[in-house]
Every structure is written in structure tokens, then in C-alpha cells.
């Protein structure tokens, strides 16, 4: 029958000559472009700071501190990436992080063993995520509003647990922060390892499991994903659970980092996480993005913060610069989307 038909199709294959491989690469990986752009900005920031500070910036100590200081944000961004790739958004993560952090500190202060306290706070984060997911999926609430309820709930609960900060004395928690595995001037803490593990596991799930591919399919077209018979409902709830779980984990890491739980932690951190994810090349409309990109986004964020500290400028510049960067990336994304729509 039709096996004789050999005409080759597809625009990328119509091109001939030496430019094929290069152009083909960019056509095929156009989704990666924003992530490359983020990487370029990161390198530029490094180079600029290095030149400006006359070689005092790119030191093993500074780079190591980058991971240490931003471990909690990295974990939040990982969870947020899942949500945003489905086309949703999770505003609750900063508050959930505060809630789980203070909850952990309180439980430990009351003598609960670490082996129980940690699973409890991780589950606490996941449960809030579950509530959000169920609202989104089964009650058709916009992700924005559902996660807003999660934000209120977690922030309020954080203050219910304690109105003031609680110091953590538990050695196992402090160990997460104080231990430094070092090579030369480089070091990494267990919190840093946890964050990198989160990135690795998330990247694995996103790219090598059916659930991960379903996340992308939902972001591309939810109705198509449903008509294709994919497990849309389960996956959509799951991404919020993952995000909540990550927020719980971030709460643990932040508590270890600061040595205390504090109910006012993480006000506005959800915005930082969203900004990092977007800067890392994830499309806010869903369907495109990489966990690795979000990691780069977090490092861009962290580097700007470090540079501002080094320059002795006011931290308020941080918010302005991140806002500006966010804007830049959004405009670039719009241009890319507009172009690809024009092509299709």
C-alpha cells in the first residue's frame, strides 16, 4: 500500500548543506534557548563581578556559598518547575516552608525524635500541596486562587505553631548545615547535597518517567492529554503534592540553615522561586522548561544577591534587579512564543 511513499517531510529536513546540523539543533531544541540564555547571563554575571572586584569573586568559597545560601530556594524552585510546566502556579511555597520549618523546630523542642519529626514536616508540606491540587483538579479552582488559600493556611498555621522563633538544638539538624565536605577550598554541606539530589531526582522524573512526560503533555494541551488517555487528573494533583513536599523539604533545610524556625520566614519567597524558574527558561504558560534551567535560575538569583552584598549596595536593589530580569525574560519568552506561533 503506502510503504512505497518515500517523500521526506518536515521542515527541518528540507534544509540542505552544512547548516543542517546547527540549524537542526536549534530548531529541535528551541525550548532550550531560554535556558542557554540564563546560563549566558550567569556566566556574564560571574565574569562581570570578577572583573569589577578584581578577581575576588570567583573563589571556591564564594561559589560553594552560593549553593549553601540558596539550597532552600533551589528546592522550592524544583517543586515549582513541576507546577509551572503543567501551566499552573503555586503561591503557597514560601508560607509552607515557614510552616514546616517552625513545625519541625517546635516538634524537636518538645522532644520528638528526629526520625519522626522530619517525616512529619515533609508530610505536612505534601498535605497542603494535596489540598491545593484537589481544589485545582476536582473543584476547578484556578491554581492561583487555590494556592492562595494554601498560602493563607500555611502562614496562619505557622503562627498557630508559634508566634516567635524557636531555636533548634537537635544535633542531627544542625549537622545538615555545619558539616562541610571539602576539597581544596570547595565545600558542600548536607543541605547542599539534599538540594542537588532534589534537582537530580526531579530531572529524572521529568524526563524518564511517564508521569514526567504527562506533566509536559498537560502543559502543552490539557485537553489533548486527556483525549490521549493520559492520567491527567492524578498528575495534576501530584505536581502540587510534589511542590508542597519540596516546600516541606525547604522548610527543613532553611531551619537547619538558620538554626531556628521562624513563622515570618519566606514571606515573598514564592515570588523569588517563580522568578528563578522563569529566568531558568520555563514558560509560564506551561509545556516547556527544565529543572536544570530552574537550578541555573536560582544561581543567577543567588549570584546577583552576592554581588549586591559585595558591592555594599542596598539589598532593595535585589528586588528591583530580579524584577527587571524577570521582565526581560518574560518579554523574550513572548517573542519566542510569538515567533513559533507565526511559524506554525
Amino acid at each position: 500500500m503506502t510503504a512505497t511513499m518515500t517523500r521526506s517531510e518536515g521542515r527541518s529536513e528540507k534544509r540542505t548543506g552544512a547548516s543542517v546540523s546547527v540549524q537542526g539543533f536549534f530548531t529541535r531544541h528551541s525550548a532550550l534557548m531560554p535556558t542557554f540564555a540564563a546560563l549566558a547571563i550567569l556566566l556574564l554575571l560571574f565574569a562581570g563581578a570578577e572583573a569589577f572586584l578584581r578577581g575576588d569573586f570567583i573563589t571556591p568559597r564564594n561559589i560553594s556559598a552560593l549553593l549553601l545560601d540558596n539550597a532552600y530556594l533551589l528546592i522550592l524552585a524544583v517543586g515549582m518547575t513541576f507546577v509551572i510546566v503543567t501551566g499552573g502556579i503555586d503561591l503557597s511555597v514560601g508560607s509552607v516552608m515557614a510552616f514546616t520549618g517552625i513545625l519541625g523546630a517546635k516538634l524537636l523542642a518538645e522532644g520528638m525524635p528526629v526520625a519522626i519529626a522530619i517525616p512529619v514536616i515533609l508530610a505536612g508540606g505534601a498535605v497542603i500541596g494535596l489540598i491545593i491540587g484537589v481544589l485545582v483538579q476536582y473543584f476547578n479552582v484556578q491554581p492561583f486562587i487555590a494556592s492562595l488559600a494554601g498560602l493563607f493556611l500555611a502562614r496562619g498555621l505557622a503562627f498557630v505553631v508559634s508566634l516567635s522563633s524557636i531555636k533548634v538544638e537537635e544535633p542531627a539538624i544542625l549537622w545538615l548545615q555545619s558539616t562541610r565536605f571539602s576539597v581544596g577550598g570547595w565545600y558542600i554541606t548536607p543541605t547542599g547535597i539534599i538540594a542537588l539530589l532534589a534537582v537530580a531526582v526531579a530531572a529524572f522524573v521529568m524526563h524518564l518517567t511517564r508521569m514526567g512526560r504527562t506533566v509536559y503533555a498537560i502543559g502543552g494541551s490539557e485537553s489533548s492529554a486527556r483525549l490521549m488517555g493520559l492520567k491527567v487528573a492524578r498528575t495534576k494533583v501530584m505536581v502540587y503534592v510534589i511542590s508542597g513536599f519540596c516546600a516541606g523539604l525547604a522548610g527543613l533545610v532553611l531551619t537547619a540553615y538558620s538554626g531556628a524556625g521562624y513563622p515570618r520566614n519566606g514571606i515573598g519567597t514564592e515570588l523569588d522561586a517563580i522568578a528563578a524558574v522563569v529566568i531558568g527558561g520555563t514558560l509560564l504558560t506551561g509545556g516547556r522548561g527544565y529543572v536544570i534551567g530552574s537550578m541555573i535560575g536560582v544561581f543567577v538569583y543567588g549570584t546577583i544577591k552576592t554581588i549586591i552584598t559585595f558591592m555594599g549596595a542596598e539589598q532593595s536593589w535585589m528586588q528591583i534587579i530580579v524584577g527587571a530580569l524577570l521582565l526581560l525574560f518574560i518579554v523574550v519568552q513572548r517573542a519566542i512564543v510569538a515567533r513559533s506561533e507565526g511559524r506554525g
Binding site: 525550548a31 524518564l208 518517567t209 502543552g220 494541551s221 485537553s223 490521549m228
Partner: peptide, 30 residues
């Protein structure tokens, strides 16, 4: 069913669209 407006995911590759949900796996890994 194949609809007039193609019900596939434009953000994914051709192969993924063909196989989505039925990818061969080794121990749960695609």
C-alpha cells in the same frame, strides 16, 4: 479518534506524541 483540530501536544516531539503513555520502559524508566 482523530479530530479536526489535531489533539496532540505541539510542545513535544513527533515520537513522543505517537507513544505518549505507551513508551517502552525498563523498570519504570522510559
Amino acid at each position: 479518534t482523530v479530530y479536526q483540530e489535531v489533539n496532540l501536544c505541539e510542545n513535544l516531539t513527533v515520537g513522543e506524541n505517537v507513544m505518549l503513555g505507551h513508551e517502552p520502559r525498563v523498570g519504570g524508566v522510559i
